[in-house]
Simulated assay, not measured.
Amino acid sequence: MISTITRIPVANYSNLKVRAGYSIKIDDKEIALFKLTNGEVYAIENRSPHPKGGVLTEGLVSGEYVFCPVYDWKISLTDGKVQAPDVGQVRTYQVEVDNDIVFIVI
């Protein structure tokens, strides 16, 4: 089976505000984009892994983490892991920035 890699343009880098979440949809996937204070952009699944599924773009960003707005779970933007004492993980997506365009790589 041959898999193909697709770069999908999703935003202008210069339009992303630092520490704010942006929701985008690719096919049936809702993805949250976050631009950090260091300029890095991360993309993760836009639902917290707990049963109530908080919308992560509505959460607070601190460093490389976003806090779920429902249960305050601390979720890593780099690997998607929920931090102890809570457990779980959200999917992460590769991000590339090229000439002010932010791409999600799928």
Rank of each mutant, 00 (worst) to 15 (best):
G80R: 10
P69S: 05
V82H: 07
N99I: 00
S76C: 13
A84Q: 08
T92I: 13
Q89W: 03
R91L: 06
K74E: 03
G63I: 05
V97M: 08
V87D: 13
L77F: 08
V95D: 01
A84Y: 10
Q94S: 13
V87Q: 15
V66W: 00
Y93P: 09
K81Y: 14
V87C: 15
Y93I: 14
Y93V: 14
V61L: 09
Q83D: 03
G80M: 09
G63E: 02
S62L: 13
V82Q: 03
D86L: 15
Q89N: 14
L60T: 14
Q83A: 08
Q83H: 10
S62C: 08
P85I: 04
F67V: 05
Y71H: 15
P85N: 06
F67A: 00
A84H: 05
Y93W: 12
G59S: 11
R91Q: 08
V70N: 02
N99V: 00
F67I: 04
G80A: 15
R91W: 02
W73L: 13
G59A: 12
G59M: 12
A84D: 09
T92Q: 00
G59N: 07
N99S: 07
D98E: 11
V61W: 08
L77M: 03
Y71S: 07
V95Y: 03
E58Q: 13
I75N: 02
G80D: 03
T92L: 04
D79Q: 10
L77C: 01
A84L: 09
V97E: 14
P85W: 09
R91P: 04
V90S: 04
V61G: 00
L60W: 10
G59P: 06
W73C: 03
D86G: 10
Y65V: 01
E96Y: 05
V61A: 01
V90M: 00
K81H: 14
G63C: 06
V66F: 02
V61T: 06
V82M: 06
V82T: 06
G88R: 09
D98Y: 04
N99C: 03
V87T: 15
V82Y: 08
Q89L: 09
V70A: 03
L77I: 05
W73T: 04
Y71M: 08
V90C: 02
K74I: 08
Y65S: 03
V61C: 03
Y93K: 09
L60P: 00
W73K: 03
A84S: 11
E96L: 06
K81Q: 12
E58I: 09
L60D: 10
Y65G: 01
D86P: 06
A84V: 06
E96W: 00
V87G: 09
K74L: 11
P85M: 07
Y71F: 12
R91K: 13
V95L: 02
D79H: 10
V87K: 14
Y65P: 04
Q83N: 07
V95F: 03
K81C: 09
P69C: 11
Q89F: 11
E64Q: 09
V95I: 10
L77Y: 02
K81E: 09
T92V: 14
P85L: 10
V66Y: 01
S62Y: 11
E64D: 06
V66K: 00
G59V: 12
E96F: 02
G88F: 12
V90R: 02
D79F: 12
E96S: 06
Q89D: 06
S76A: 11
V66I: 09
E96I: 05
V82I: 13
D72Q: 14
V82R: 05
